[in-house]
Simulated scan of single mutants.
Amino acid sequence: MSDRARNVARFLHVCRGPDGAVGGRTRRRHPRKRRQTATTCYLERDEVEQLFDGLPRDGKPATREKALLMFLYNTGTRATEVIGLTVDQLVLTSSP
């Protein structure tokens, strides 16, 4: 038996349903992987206020950190999305 014929025979064996029919609605289904869905974690408003209150107030690093946290909070952007962001992608005008 050639490799091609052997592969077709294996395929038909896998697709054969409980009644012996091939294909259609009677074919055997493979079980799906079951995995736990990830939970979404977020900060409450008072926790966000505490976070902003705890930031340093003077210097360029303080301004940078506050701007970054405000951007994350106001847009809902993930930290991993911000990592790849470039200045050219920002729109720095106020919306109407």
Results as ranks from 00 to 15, higher is better:
residue 18 P to Q: 10
residue 92 L to W: 11
residue 71 F to A: 01
residue 50 Q to S: 03
residue 55 L to T: 04
residue 3 D to K: 07
residue 9 A to L: 06
residue 71 F to Y: 08
residue 14 V to E: 09
residue 37 T to Q: 07
residue 12 L to W: 06
residue 75 T to R: 03
residue 92 L to Q: 10
residue 51 L to W: 05
residue 43 L to S: 04
residue 88 D to Y: 15
residue 31 P to E: 05
residue 39 T to H: 11
residue 27 R to Y: 10
residue 37 T to W: 02
residue 31 P to G: 04
residue 35 R to V: 02
residue 1 M to L: 01
residue 30 H to D: 05
residue 95 S to A: 14
residue 52 F to N: 07
residue 27 R to G: 10
residue 9 A to D: 01
residue 6 R to K: 04
residue 17 G to M: 03
residue 33 K to N: 12
residue 69 L to K: 00
residue 63 T to V: 14
residue 48 V to K: 01
residue 15 C to H: 11
residue 75 T to M: 04
residue 20 G to I: 01
residue 67 A to G: 02
residue 42 Y to R: 13
residue 1 M to T: 06
residue 34 R to E: 00
residue 22 V to H: 09
residue 82 V to F: 14
residue 27 R to V: 07
residue 30 H to K: 04
residue 60 K to A: 06
residue 26 T to M: 11
residue 65 E to V: 04
residue 52 F to R: 05
residue 4 R to N: 14
residue 75 T to N: 05
residue 19 D to A: 11
residue 74 N to S: 10
residue 59 G to P: 00
residue 48 V to E: 01
residue 69 L to C: 03
residue 80 T to A: 13
residue 34 R to N: 08
residue 14 V to D: 07
residue 68 L to M: 11
residue 75 T to P: 07
residue 23 G to I: 02
residue 71 F to Q: 09
residue 89 Q to A: 15
residue 50 Q to N: 05
residue 32 R to M: 09
residue 35 R to D: 04
residue 63 T to I: 05
residue 25 R to C: 10
residue 46 D to H: 12
residue 67 A to K: 03
residue 67 A to P: 06
residue 82 V to L: 14
residue 17 G to A: 11
residue 77 T to L: 12
residue 22 V to E: 09
residue 17 G to Y: 13
residue 4 R to I: 07
residue 15 C to W: 03
residue 88 D to H: 12
residue 95 S to N: 15
residue 18 P to H: 13
residue 4 R to C: 05
residue 52 F to W: 02
residue 81 E to T: 06
residue 15 C to V: 11
residue 44 E to Y: 09
residue 71 F to N: 00
residue 64 R to E: 01
residue 83 I to Q: 14
residue 6 R to C: 03
residue 70 M to L: 10
residue 25 R to N: 12
residue 67 A to Y: 02
residue 2 S to A: 08
residue 3 D to E: 09
residue 29 R to D: 04
residue 63 T to S: 10
residue 76 G to F: 07
residue 84 G to P: 11
residue 89 Q to E: 15
residue 11 F to Y: 15
residue 12 L to T: 05
residue 22 V to S: 10
residue 40 T to R: 13
residue 95 S to P: 07
residue 32 R to Q: 08
residue 72 L to S: 00
residue 73 Y to G: 03
residue 48 V to M: 00
residue 59 G to M: 09
residue 26 T to S: 13
residue 52 F to M: 11
residue 29 R to H: 05
residue 30 H to Q: 07
residue 93 T to G: 13
residue 61 P to L: 06
residue 52 F to Y: 09
residue 4 R to F: 02
residue 86 T to N: 08
residue 22 V to N: 02
residue 76 G to I: 04
residue 16 R to A: 09
residue 32 R to V: 03
residue 6 R to I: 08
residue 30 H to A: 01
residue 79 A to C: 12
residue 74 N to P: 05
residue 68 L to Q: 09
residue 3 D to M: 01
residue 16 R to H: 00
residue 74 N to M: 15
residue 51 L to V: 01
residue 47 E to R: 05
residue 35 R to P: 06
residue 80 T to Q: 15
residue 47 E to H: 02
residue 57 R to L: 12
residue 22 V to K: 01
residue 76 G to D: 04
residue 91 V to I: 14
residue 65 E to L: 06
residue 80 T to W: 12
residue 94 S to I: 13
residue 84 G to I: 15
residue 14 V to S: 11
residue 91 V to T: 13
residue 80 T to R: 15
residue 43 L to P: 00
residue 23 G to T: 11
residue 29 R to A: 01
residue 31 P to V: 07
residue 12 L to C: 10
residue 94 S to D: 15
residue 6 R to E: 02
residue 41 C to H: 14
residue 90 L to F: 03
